Simulated assay, not measured.
Amino acid sequence: MTTLLPDAAIVTGASRSIGRAIAERLARDGRPVVVGYAHRADEAAVTVRAIAEFGGRAVAVGGDVADGDTAARLFDAADAEFGGAAVLVANAGVSVLGPIATYDDDAYDRVFDASARGTFRCLRAAAARLADHGRVVTVSSTAVATATPGMGVYLAAKAAVETMTRVAAKELAPRGITVNAVAPGLVRSEMFADGKTAEELAAIARSAPRTRLGEITEIADAVSLLTAPDASWISGQVIRVNGGVA
């Protein structure tokens, strides 16, 4: 078993929803957290306050992970505030849905910048600056495995995330760093609920194997497992956290 130093976790897209749940869970695990956010400074501050309320430590750092210097600034904050980072959770992403035949070029750029480019830049920074025997978790989607119509561009970006995850796991293995992805499915998140009525959400829940939607805290639980010291032999995997949907 490898014992990690009590260094910080960096969580991107942590101002709300799944990202906030992950940040709070890792803080409860005893890690100080760098709360990364792109635009919602007020909501990132809510995440920091929530962590402080139960005795955790956190600092918010703004910036789009698709921009060149944001990943470096996240690691700079971890170094300055907490003595370095042992965990990176690359959660930031944008969902713009629609059929490939009518998909907008600007939407394509937004989706790939946030998920694929942003994850790439976070992985590149982690390769240089994450502590040895650290943990990296990226975020994909269960729908990559089901090729859901109307999600082609979004899922293509997430498929890129999964491929980079598997390759990075091999490249960082000599330093004892594990790299895995979680792939949520049918989760009661803001992104999933966007544009759906309560009746539509209820129907989706009834169609699931366990006749309910997952909770964002259950995604955070999976990330906690993958970032734990006892997870040292799990690497290069895509863990589909979906209640048995696929």
Rank of each mutant, 00 (worst) to 15 (best):
G55D: 01
G19A: 04
T70S: 03
R40Q: 06
E24Y: 04
D76L: 13
D69Q: 03
R25S: 02
T70R: 04
D67C: 05
G68F: 09
R31H: 14
D67W: 09
G62L: 10
R49E: 13
F82W: 10
D76T: 12
L88T: 00
G55M: 13
G36Y: 00
R73G: 08
L74N: 03
R31M: 05
E43W: 05
D79T: 14
D76S: 13
I18A: 07
A66K: 07
D76F: 01
V65W: 04
V59D: 01
G84Y: 01
V33D: 03
G55Q: 09
A45W: 11
A41N: 05
A77R: 14
R20A: 03
A52C: 10
D29P: 15
A90H: 10
F75D: 10
A78P: 12
E43Q: 11
T70C: 11
P32G: 05
D69N: 11
A77H: 05
R25E: 15
G84W: 09
R73S: 02
G30L: 11
L26C: 14
P32Q: 03
A38W: 11
A86G: 10
Y37D: 00
V61H: 08
E43P: 09
R49W: 04
F54A: 00
G68Y: 02
V65Q: 09
A90G: 01
G62P: 06
A23K: 08
A66V: 05
I51V: 04
V87N: 02
A27T: 07
A85E: 03
G62H: 15
D29G: 01
G84S: 07
A52D: 13
G36R: 15
G36S: 09
A66W: 01
A44V: 06
V61E: 00
V33H: 05
A66F: 03
F75T: 02
I18P: 14
R28W: 08
A21D: 04
Y37R: 13
E81A: 10
G30C: 08
A52V: 15
R20F: 05
R25Q: 13
E43I: 00
